[in-house]
Design a protein around this nucleic acid. Structure first.
Lengths: 200, 200
DNA sequence: TGTGTTGGATAGTGGTGATATCTAATATTG
DNA sequence: CAATATTAGATATCACCACTATCCAACACA
């Protein structure tokens, strides 16, 4: 299909598609001539991914490109690819050599403190932000969160496909795309409980 | 304290503080004269909240103002205030009269489907985005998530303060500030499990 | 042969978060 | 008391970003 049809199929305007091509978010179509390229179903899907990552997950174009690069060239192992992908997701965190809040929490939960994990840094950042807002998370609360989150994570990992490429793409996109779902579920439960306790 | 000291205390530049004042994120100081105002600890805290909401939670200045307005004038009941605050948090969702994906999930979980809840709309949006990315959430998975998330939410609500004002501010800021913590915990668990299964 | 679309390049748009500059008024210091 | 510095408040400017618009020669198709 030509670019105008890709535009019709995806709802993205032709100039926007050209923009994605320029920015390297969308792989070029197969060149039919100097002035014509053929796009296929992979392009349709890719545009959907781009729009979901930017609009719903809230990534910038740059972050989206970073995530998609990991999906396209994941490297040999899941752990490395996952870490790389997390590095493109917010919050962006400056490197340091110790993350005291995160370490305390992780040790309290009996998990392994590993400062090299990107997620460790992001946890530190998130805990610091909660403190700054005036709603710090105490140990008892984190002790409650921990097992529930771990159970969710184990279930996630159990469902990752076997083949390495599919696994990486699934893990990377799943992390970004499923977080808003979990957040929405929690908000929904809050709102529901609040409605029941408020009104009657 | 004068604005320069507030700047020193918070790390925000004087022009930035003036910007927050102009935009209505920061309440004015007590005017000492035509060219001098006194700021206090409430201003220091408020700047911390603003920076955490914008930098870590990722809200725009406009969204932050919306959330802070709810905190400042919450209205009489928690449910309304919470809904209003959620409306300022991403993802922004166009209104509709039915949210089929969300309804299916909510009914499957045995919760109450209430299309008026902002969180219902946000759930629909998040589920649609996951589909678009190619990693839809099946019923079985949501059935696993549901109880864990609900347990977390109940624990959250149990710890909300009794006094209405404190409760609302806690609920609103807590929702925004604790989501990144939960997300980071889940990412950490993923990365940890991936590290163990990959390397050995 | 003519009409119209394409790829590719370049430039422009609107919004946003933050700075910079300016002025008159007021503290502070020597 | 004079000189210097700092402030509030207003206006203007900046850099960035995600797009969008325009233009052109090359080409397809009727």
């Amino acid at each position: 299909m030509l670019i105008s049809e890709l535009s019709a199929r995806t709802g993205a305007s032709v100039p926007t598609l050209k923009f994605y091509l320029r920015e390297g978010l969308l792989h070029p179509g197969e060149s039919l001539s100097q002035t014509r390229s053929a796009y296929d179903e992979t392009h349709v899907r890719r545009v959907g991914v781009i729009r979901a990552l930017t609009e719903t997950v809230g990534l910038s174009v740059q972050q989206t490109r970073g995530v998609l690069e990991v999906v396209d060239s994941p490297g040999p192992d899941l752990y490395t690819a996952y870490g790389r992908a997390l590095g493109h997701l917010p919050p962006a965190v400056p490197e340091s050599d110790d993350y005291p809040r995160a370490r305390a929490v992780i040790e309290r939960l009996g998990w392994a403190y590993e400062p090299k994990h990107v997620a460790t840094r992001q946890l530190e950042q998130a805990l610091a932000a909660a403190e700054a807002v005036g709603v710090p998370l105490d140990d008892e609360r984190l002790a409650v969160y921990g097992p529930h989150v771990h159970a969710i994570a184990e279930h996630d990992l159990a469902r990752v496909p076997r083949e390495p490429d599919a696994a990486i793409s699934y893990a990377v996109l799943g992390t970004a795309a499923h977080e808003p779902v979990l957040a929405a579920l929690r908000r929904l439960a809050h709102q529901d409980i609040a409605a029941r306790t408020t009104t009657g």
